[in-house]
Design a protein around this nucleic acid. Sequence first.
DNA 1: CTTTCCGGTTGATCTGGGTCAATGAACGAC
DNA 2: GTCGTTCATTGACCCAGATCAACCGGAAAG
Lengths: 239, 239
Amino acid sequence: MERLDKRETVCCGASVACESCAVRPLAVCGALPTDALARLARMTHPRRLGPGATLIEEGEPALDVFTVVEGMLKLYKLMPDGRRQITGFMIPGDFVGLSVGEAYIYSAEAVMPTTACRFRRNFFHGMMEDYPDLETRLLGIVSTELAAAQGQMLLLGRKTAKERLASFLLSLAGRLEVAAGDRLALPMTRSDIADFLGLTIETVSRTFTVLRKEGLLARVDKAGVVVADIDALARAAGD
Amino acid sequence: MERLDKRETVCCGASVACESCAVRPLAVCGALPTDALARLARMTHPRRLGPGATLIEEGEPALDVFTVVEGMLKLYKLMPDGRRQITGFMIPGDFVGLSVGEAYIYSAEAVMPTTACRFRRNFFHGMMEDYPDLETRLLGIVSTELAAAQGQMLLLGRKTAKERLASFLLSLAGRLEVAAGDRLALPMTRSDIADFLGLTIETVSRTFTVLRKEGLLARVDKAGVVVADIDALARAAGD
DNA sequence: CTTTCCGGTTGATCTGGGTCAATGAACGAC
DNA sequence: GTCGTTCATTGACCCAGATCAACCGGAAAG
């Protein structure tokens, strides 16, 4: 595989075929008719990001929006003293670049080699005017994200460490369509998981060990887990 | 004032004048032209709720959407064992009743006498088809809520008790447009504040005392506070 | 008036998860 | 191979906030 260094980003100038895009049915672009896809393809700028590369930064002018095509991004907010809260991990088909007003409200960084289609915000708004289904689709996507955010508030405000980790693994397995018994890849670090769950890396590590010793996870290593007992994991998640 | 008991709800059958609605400029209805307002007025069903009355319940079929006209609602999610996370307090102009799929994703309950305009979901979707600006406005509202939810994730995952309470008071004062030195009404109980901030009532109470003793708050009582030093409160909020 | 109730405050004590520290395992660089 | 680096795990100890408990004050009922 092509090697991408930290912070290196490659902007591919080659032509893009939205018509044959694998993630289109999942993504906001799935709302567009065939004749609009050519227009879309002319205006998109895919960006390739190596692990750790920054796509957008909180507070910067929000000039672009993105659709994740492959890989995974983490979205996060920082406090001045460095405390970090990861608000989500974005996978192929997900929409990134929401802003309220002029600036991005979170930073986005690749957790593994990642490709994202970039659109100018103004162009995207123009497309929404021309194709109302696009706006309807985006409303659905943002509503789904808001629902997920409210679930995460319950997790962060009221769940124990074990419930948090179990909820996280279940939710990720669901989104990535990994069945029980199969390996669930965890491309993010323990530090990322901790900052998503409102814990420390030590507690995340200890809690992985607990879940393994209790038999809910069959295998735990740096890069992934195997879910042994998905029902028990769901019970451990608390709701 | 008319007395409304807990759980009592009154559905007002009288005619409604959306044209002269005080919260319309704030609300989603503000996107509609004058001629659409008559149609809206014919189809809305204002509901009056006494303190503690339930407007919607998580998991119930999501048949209606609402705009808060006066008072305040709390939105919350429950775990089977009774742990509760309040995901937001909704004030006049706010939109309530988001669902993903068929069911409501949260419960909503009045914290004080409250009026909300009810619309059938199907009717509201029809209006969005006829008036695309309505959908655009709703997308903006949901995006703003998602941004607030991400801020709340940072609060719940990474902030101390003092930072949480300071953030909450600042945010509420901003939304209610209460200036420093004026009284900020807190119609919700300490238990509601605790369940919003991921704390216990004891910690909320102690933290109010700390903020008062440090001079950031001039007055603290059951029903409200007076912010003495808004800059210090902003510093205490952590970002 | 007294009583009960309910929400809030304060104090004493406990504990889940944080902090600090040591160790291990994987991976490039040389 | 041997460093150095980074990430993960584990153990020992600590603390912010939870829990348990006492008490207070206003409002409603009798």
